[in-house]
Design a protein around this nucleic acid. Sequence first.
RNA 1: CGGGACGUAGCGCAGCCUGGUAGCGCACUUGCUUGGGGUGCAAGGGGUCGCGAGUUCAAAUCUCGCCGUCCCGACCA
Length: 589
Amino acid sequence: MHRWSQLFIPTLREAPADAEVASHKLLVRAGYVRQLGAGIYSFLFLGNRSTQKIMNIVREEMDKIGQEFYLPALNPRELWESSGRWSAMGENMFRLKDRKGADLCLGMTHEEVMTDIARKELRSYKQLPQIWYQIQTKFRDEPRPKSGLLRVRQFIMKDAYSFDIDAAGLDASYQKHYETYCRIFDRCGLKYMVIDAHSGAMGGSQSQEFMVRTPAGEDQIVSCEKCDYAANLEKAISKVDPVEDLKSEGDGQPLEVHTPGQKTIEDVARFLGVSPKNKIKTLAMMVTESDGDAKAPKVRQRAVVLLMRGDHQMNEAKLSSAVAGKETRPMQEDEIRDLFKSPAGYLGPLGIDWATSITDQSKPMLLVDKALEGRSNLIGGANKEDFHVKNLTPGGNFHPTAYVDLRSVAAGENCPNCGAPLRMDTAVEIGHIFKLGYKYSDSMGARVLDRNGKEVAPIMGSYGIGIERILTAAIEQSNDENGFWLPTAIAPFDVVVVSANQKDEQIRSASESIANSLQSSGYDVLLDDRDERPGVKFKDADLVGIPFRINVGKKVTEDTVEVVRRSTLAREDVKISAISDYFLALKSA
RNA sequence: CGGGACGUAGCGCAGCCUGGUAGCGCACUUGCUUGGGGUGCAAGGGGUCGCGAGUUCAAAUCUCGCCGUCCCGACCA
C-alpha cells in the first residue's frame, strides 16, 4: 500500500501553456510526466507505474507466441549500410561518432539487428519459425515532435520480428500477432479498430494498423458503419457512382475550344456548362530516380504527369506507391513549360510522347487514375494558353503509361464492400503489423537450408506497439475538465482511499484499515493520508486517472464509506465490512 | 526546412509600446484558523527577466545575432 503523503505526485492546477491536446495537459497536470525537451519526456512515479503495467500486459501476451530479447539502441553504421537504410533513413536517424571517429546511430527500429542475428545464427528450416521480440527505447529525430506524448523523439516500443520458411508460415506468424495484439489492446481496455494500412517504402504484401479514434490523432482513417471495411486514407478505396460521359462533338477527334482566362477546373466547367466530373485534372510532378548503382548512383529528375477526374483529390501516399516510393514534388514553372510548352492552367495529355510502360524510363510517365479508365469525351487542357480540348478519351486519342489508383477517398463515398456510406475519422496508431517479405533477409543475406538442402531466404514480418501511445490514447478516450480515468489494467492504482479528515482519529484509522485490507486482497491501493482539506484530495483523486475512489468520511460512524467510480462519478454507499467483496464483484463483472 | 507565436520565481500571467526600485495569482515555509469539492488571516523565502553583443548615464523594456519551446505547413520506416 502506498501513502500519498510519502510520494512525489506533483499535481498542477493549471496545464502548461504549451500543451495543446487533452492527454498532454492531463499527463502533466496529474504528475505523470515532465518535459525535458521537444519530444523528450521524463516519466515520474505515476506515469512509470502505468507504462510498467502496460508493458507487463504486452509481455505476458507476447510470451505466449514469442521470445523476449533485449537489443542495443546503439548501432554501428555498417549494420545499417548492409540493409541500405543508413542513407534511406535520412535525417530521422540520430547519428553520432565514437572516440575513434566511427559512425554510430541510435536505433529507430530493429529489423537490422534482428536480421543480423538471424543471418549469423539461423541455418536450417528446422529452426523456423521464430518470433523474437523486445520492449525497448527507440530514437527518431522527428521533424516536428508534437501533441505531448503522441509524437516524440524517444519512446518505448514493443517490436517483434518473425522468421518463416515460406509465405504460409509468415501468414501464420502474422495471424498470431493479429490475435495477440487484439488480446493486448482488449486487456488494456482500449476501444480500437484494425485497418488496412499503406505499406509505404517498407514494401511488403500486407499491413494492418491498430487505431484509436481521437481528434488528437494524426492519421485519417476511413471506415464503413455497415460492414467491417476500414482502411487508412493512404490506402482506402471506394466505389464511385458512374458518371454519364459527354457526347462526342464534331468528328469525335480532339476539339480545341477557346477558354480565355479560365484556369481552374471550376472555372472551365462553369464556362463550358459541364460538370467537373467530365473534366480532367492534370497534375505535373517530378520524380527523383537513381540508376540503382549502389556505389555511385546517378540521380535524375523525370516528369510524371497525373490525370484525375476534375472533382477528385490526389493522394500522396498512393502516388508514392505508384512510383515505387521514389521522391516526388510538383513541377516548377520552367519545367512545366519545357514539357507542355504551355502555361499552367491549360495542361493536358495531348502532343507529348509518353512512356508506354512503367519499365520504360526514357520518357515522361502519364499515370491516369482508375476513375478515368473507360471514360470518354472528357475535357482537358490543350497545352496552349486560353484553350481546352473536348473529346478526350483515355486509351483512344492519348495513351496512358498506366492506370493506377491515385484518388483520395472522401467521406460519404460508398464502401467498396457493401456500398454503404463511408465515414472519416482522425485516429492515433497504437500498433502496426507488417508482412515484410524478403526485403531484409535478401539485402542482408540471411539464408537457411530448406527441406531439400537448398539455400533460401527466410521470409519476415515485423510488428510494433507504441507503449506510451496506449496510455495517451486511453487518456484521450476518457477525460473531462477535471482529469481522466484509466482502465484498471493500466491505471497506476486500482483505487485511491481518501481520508476526508486526517485529524479525525476514527476516519484516519478506518482509512488505514480499508486500504490495508484491499491491498492484501490483491488490489493496488493508494491511501491519501495527507493533511489536506477534503476538497483538495477529491480534486487530486479526480485528476490522476485512478478508476475507483473510496471516500472515508463522517459515515464511518455508521460503518459506511462511499465508493466513487471515476468514469461516471456514480457514487454508492458500501459497508466497510463488505468493501473487499464489493471490489471482488466488480472484478468478476 | 518555410510561415506564425512565445520565452519574466516551480506553474499560469502582468510589466515592454513611452528605458530609471521586478510585480500579481497559485504553489512553497511558519503560525493561527478551517475540515465533504482547490478554507480564511497574517508573516516570510524564492527571479543571471532564455543567452550574447550593441545603443544609452541607465536595458526585462530599444537594436542585432544566437538558443529554446509551441502551433500551421512540408515531412513522418
